[in-house]
């Protein structure tokens, strides 16, 4: 019996490698998806090495250079405190990506577990969990995030929680749907027959086999989490000064829009390009992972 269970992951591993290679092959055929992937990888690189790449510390004030337009010294200009906008954008990438990925991580963990439990057990557990998700889904995601953030108060951690919790129902529904389509399959029955526990079946067999829609939703989810977080920071519920979150930078610069448009132009552009790249990547992944579109 132990031989059987040891052999199973090896087979799954070979299959998943083949699957991954095929997905990457299909993804490479979409120039927009590749643009998205490369852009996000570059942004992640910039975020990780922000300390090395940023020309100035993000909080360094220089009132002698306030409101400067782009120049050789300050490539994207400076803000009202003379802080370098490029440096703040580079550090802001770290915060925005952190918020996007951690919020989706929270949503994926909570929503994924709820969805998996609901789908696997069915009955009243499924009914109870999914009706709760229906209730949460009946509040628009942005509004729910605002309500949670208003209750928790501003701050990076609370922002991630608010954005993450607001997205939980989306993941719960997707994972439940996948679990429902998989749970009656023969390999699940086989796992049950060899005595695997419910938790092991869910974690080792069901979730890995329902990854395709989860990956697509997560990629698009990071985009919407970044957008939601920027919106919350814009209305004062997210990151507080002096941290350079893109939405907060936009909000700070809006009062100077008549005379110093560059204060709002670049943070907005950074948000838009990041969301655009994630959307292209998400769309590309959806096409690459959708079996209906295969040859």
């Amino acid at each position: 019996m132990s031989d059987y269970s040891a052999a199973a992951p090896a087979v799954t591993g070979r299959k998943s490698r083949r699957g991954l290679a095929e997905v990457l092959f299909r993804l490479r055929k979409s120039p927009l998806a590749m643009f998205g992937l490369i852009f996000i990888l570059c942004l992640a690189f910039v975020a990780v090495f922000a300390g090395v790449l940023a020309p100035y510390p993000y909080q360094k004030q220089n009132l002698m250079h306030s409101y400067e337009t782009p120049s050789r010294q300050f490539w994207l200009g400076t803000d009202e405190f003379g802080r370098d906008i490029l440096s703040r954008l580079i550090y802001g990438a770290r915060i925005s990506l952190q918020v996007g990925f951690i919020a989706v991580g929270i949503a994926l963990f909570v929503g994924g577990m709820l969805g998996a439990v609901a789908g696997y057990y069915g009955g009243w557990i499924d009914n109870g969990i999914m009706r709760l998700m229906d209730v949460l889904l009946s509040v628009p995601q942005t509004l729910l995030a605002i309500a949670i953030a208003a209750s928790l108060g501003p701050g990076l951690f609370n922002l991630m929680i608010a954005v993450g919790i607001a997205a939980v129902p989306n993941y719960a529904r997707i994972v439940r749907g996948s679990v429902l389509s998989i749970r009656e399959m023969e390999f699940i029955e086989a796992a049950r027959a060899v005595g695997s526990s419910d938790l092991r079946i869910i974690l080792k067999h069901i979730l890995p086999n329902s990854m395709a829609p989860i990956i697509v939703q997560s990629t698009l989810g990071v985009a919407s989490a970044i957008l939601n977080a920027a919106g919350l920071s814009f209305i004062g519920l997210g990151i507080q000064p002096p941290y350079p979150e893109w939405g907060a930078m936009l909000s700070g610069g809006r009062q100077y829009i008549r005379d110093y448009a560059h204060l709002t132009l670049y943070p907005g552009l950074a948000i838009m390009l990041t969301i655009l790249a994630l959307n292209f990547l998400g769309d590309g992944l959806r096409d690459a992972l959708d079996p209906k579109l295969k040859r």
């Binding site: 957008l227 920027a230 919106g231 814009f234 939405g247 936009l250 909000s251 907005g268 838009m272 292209f280």
Partner: peptide, 13 residues
């Protein structure tokens, strides 16, 4: 796609 990616508060500004 640009419309979907553009934050409403930035477009407004």
């Amino acid at each position: 796609m640009i419309g979907l990616s553009m934050p409403v508060f930035w477009l407004g500004l």
